[in-house]
Nucleic acid binder design. Structure first.
Lengths: 198, 198
DNA sequence: ACCCCTTTTTGTTCTAAGTCAAAAGCTTTC
DNA sequence: GAAAGCTTTTGACTTAGAACAAAAAGGGGT
């Protein structure tokens, strides 16, 4: 077995097992459903108007989530860097048409599992259902609620500080315009926050 | 069996079965874990600093969710009226201390199940795990994501219209101050929106 | 019917952040 | 290494909604 492949396999396995420990036989069944892919910067994992058919486990890279509003302006709602689970939850769970886009902002390494495979695994393995519950609880609930209370209670400066805290190297990897859009402020305002004029 | 009790049982059963159909034997095991309670207006289901130990199924009544900020100001984050599932998701799933309060704003009829009972049922019944997945997906993900995109993309007037649309009778049941707090605007501004001056 | 207390409305002033515009810095690329 | 393109910064002006203040309107309880 080649060194590179081995390293990648371990990355995915680690993420899966850190969520909830699966019996070896179930783990193997689960791993077999994943496809390992590499996509270039700017590639779209998801575009609005299509149902989200995958859950993606990124082991390396960076993505942004964004909506395009009526005036055609793109508004970022989230960034995921390095080792992260990626999907459009509302579209995935209801298999409704996505409203948001998910786009790579760096060349990225991704492991994909299809929605239909997840459904099959849920029915087949009780332990996989327990794993999936942990995934949803930890990944969505924690992340979304956190973001919600930020939007509600913090001003732009505080939200920027928090983002810097979460991803200290974010300014080297994501443009000011993209970060401003995530903070829901203009890039002029973010520039002024950065230079300490606000 | 009394008429009133029968009616209530059916209400709870309906909610449970509408989420995901459980085998009769599992349903009975689940129903047996619920406690039926009636609480008066202003009662607190949850206060900050305590872990959320229950999932509540309200069959009648109204609650508000709110945070208290550093200046002691209460900020509403959600309302649930009539038939709704109620809990503090982040606190429940991680059994961490709650940051928010959940308070009744009308006399309410509630069916409560404990977190520990849910854990036991999840391990015991594969079908209950599948039921719980649907609950989390439908209840949390749909609701929270919806709220998140509202906060991000709609201004106060649009958010107010949407709330009126969801709960047309809300103005008769919830005070202007409480609604303004939910919309994250002052009550003066909401009063002006209502009278069409904004 | 009156008083007390809470909720809602109205008026004025103030401020954080947006908009528009232009300059300054960086980076590709030929 | 100059031109062309982005990205970021700076400046001037505008605006939505906050803050403060005070008046008006409801709504029970005695």
């Amino acid at each position: 077995m080649g060194k590179a492949v081995n390293k990648m396999k371990v990355g995915l396995e680690d993420i899966i097992q850190s969520i909830y420990l699966l019996p070896q036989e179930v783990l193997e069944d689960v791993l077999a459903q994943f496809q390992h892919l590499e996509y270039p910067k700017n590639y779209f994992l998801l575009k609005p108007g299509k149902p989200c058919k995958h859950l993606w486990f990124m082991t390396n890279g960076a993505v942004r989530y964004f909506y395009t509003n009526d005036q055609g302006k793109e508004m970022n709602t989230w960034f995921s860097l390095d080792t992260q689970i990626i999907t459009d939850a509302p579209s995935l769970v209801n298999q409704t048409l996505a409203q948001e886009s998910i786009q790579l902002i760096e060349d990225s390494e991704i492991h994909a599992i299809e929605y239909t495979s997840i459904q099959t695994l849920l029915q087949k393995h009780h332990s996989f259902a327990l794993w999936y519950i942990k995934l949803v609880e930890m990944h969505y609930i924690a992340q979304i609620e956190d973001r919600l209370s930020d939007l509600q209670f913090l001003d732009a400066t505080q939200r920027y500080q928090k983002l810097l805290n979460l991803y200290p190297d974010i300014t080297n990897r994501i443009s000011l315009g993209n970060i401003a859009s995530y903070l829901n402020i203009t890039q002029e305002t973010l520039s002024r926050i950065r230079s300490g004029k606000l």
